[in-house]
Amino acid sequence: MKTHPFLKTHNKHLAWVLAAVNEMIEESIYYCDTFAHTLQAHHNETAAAIFSALSPYFKSEQEIVLAKLPEQNLPAIPPWEIPHQDYEHPANALMQAHYLMTEHEAWQIVTDMIQVHHCFYRDLIANSSQKEVIDLITSLQTHCLKCEKICATKRVPTKSDDPQDPIDDLDAPVAQS
């Protein structure tokens, strides 16, 4: 591996923070879009719509980051060094998905994804003394709170909204090869 001297510092400067945050948001956008598509392919329009709905919010969150520095100028952080110590990767929430997931479960997963962002921001702010970093994170946190509020308003849990197990599938998966 090539060495990147700027990574050796514990003093997380703005560029590093921008890059790390951008990596995380990009993951969330990617998975929202990808899961929206596969849920649609599995004819679960309801859950697909929820993932589709969230994607633009993540994209506007990314715009806040890229407004500070365009993507091509962000430093390269080895993808395994994005600090996940304090939060779970969105992958862990997404592994709870299944193709018959209910509206309730879908909202739970996207809310968990927003929580991932929240946790990361809290950690960054706790470990930073630089004003520019704190300012950036604060605006990202504000954005996240907005997203959470929207989720909370749109999410209308009903009694029938209980998780289903795929074993109860009346139209089980079709063998393909």
């Binding site: 998975y31 990808t34 899961f35 596969t38 859950a47 992958a91 997404l94 592994m95 709870q96 997931m101």
Partner: peptide, 10 residues
């Protein structure tokens, strides 16, 4: 990808 939602392969 059209793997089942939640599939590890994603």
């Amino acid at each position: 990808p059209v793997w089942c939602p939640g599939c590890g392969h994603f």
